[in-house]
Design a protein around this nucleic acid. Structure first.
Lengths: 139, 139
DNA sequence: ATCCCTGCAAAGTCTTTGCACTCCC
DNA sequence: GGGAGTGCAAAGACTTTGCAGGGAT
């Protein structure tokens, strides 16, 4: 049977629990490779393929935000708010803040319309150095 | 000797001319692979590695804009204006428009500051379906 | 008992790099 | 002629996929 919402049933497994807990324990974006490394260091035995599959699964379920870093690597992070939002990411330590930008959304929609575009979507991420990082050793 | 601006000397070669001309002939973003395919179809014999190297070179010189598509592939396009700008890209045909968003830049800077971030930069691209595409066959 | 989930390893992309040859300056 | 530029193939990095065994329901 289904859960009635079209979302397939997910089994509760050790690997998924560990990955979820690890994501919940940080506010940083992690790559599949990075997360797998982290788990390995902690002695948790989870296959790399499983990490990839699980992260994709979580992303599909809307449980994690994902984006690509400048190297093209996919990064994942626990999702705090379901509503549409963007991120302010520290280049130094990787910590993040979720930010909303209603004006941005409006502007995007309006600009696209003016150019005759429909079905508009956008990507937007902010990068900088957080207070803790530039306060400590500055740059 | 150098050109006095720190930018290394670039030789004018067949491969570079062909790649530059091809980029100039379209307003779409092309991947290195895609561009190489295109050249091959046209009977132009340019190595894939050269395409990669040349595109990077052009990007370094600020002659082309580059961004990553959702698959993580790097895309390149001739750069019309040197000033900071963003793109409105058609998901259907790939054609693009350059757009400026002064308010966006302001908002980004302000928001980052409020959170104590410095050295702010951002990524922003708009995606949609252009008039020509949704006018023709719609969706 | 079923069949989803996992781990391993192989395979697939995109991209970079090493090396010898070529061609611009 | 010298050295940047090129082509080819090998290598690298990230990610996906096939398959058989294991575990959740």
């Amino acid at each position: 049977m289904s859960n009635g919402v079209g979302q397939p049933i997910r089994r509760s497994t050790r690997a998924r629990s560990i990955i979820r807990e690890t994501l919940d324990s940080t506010d940083k974006f992690l790559s599949a490779q990075g997360l797998h490394e982290l788990l390995t260091e902690r002695g948790e035995d989870v296959g790399l393929a499983t990490v990839y599959r699980t992260l994709q699964l979580f992303a599909d379920d809307g449980d994690v935000d994902c984006l690509r870093d400048s190297d093209g690597e996919m990064l994942y992070r626990k999702c705090l708010r379901q509503a549409h939002h963007h991120h302010l990411i520290c280049r130094r330590c990787g910590s993040t803040q979720e930010v909303e930008a209603p004006q941005l959304e409006d502007w995007a929609e309006r600009t696209a319309s003016q150019h005759g575009f429909v079905g508009v979507s956008h990507t937007f991420e902010l990068y900088g150095v957080c207070a803790a990082c530039h306060g400590d050793a500055d740059a």
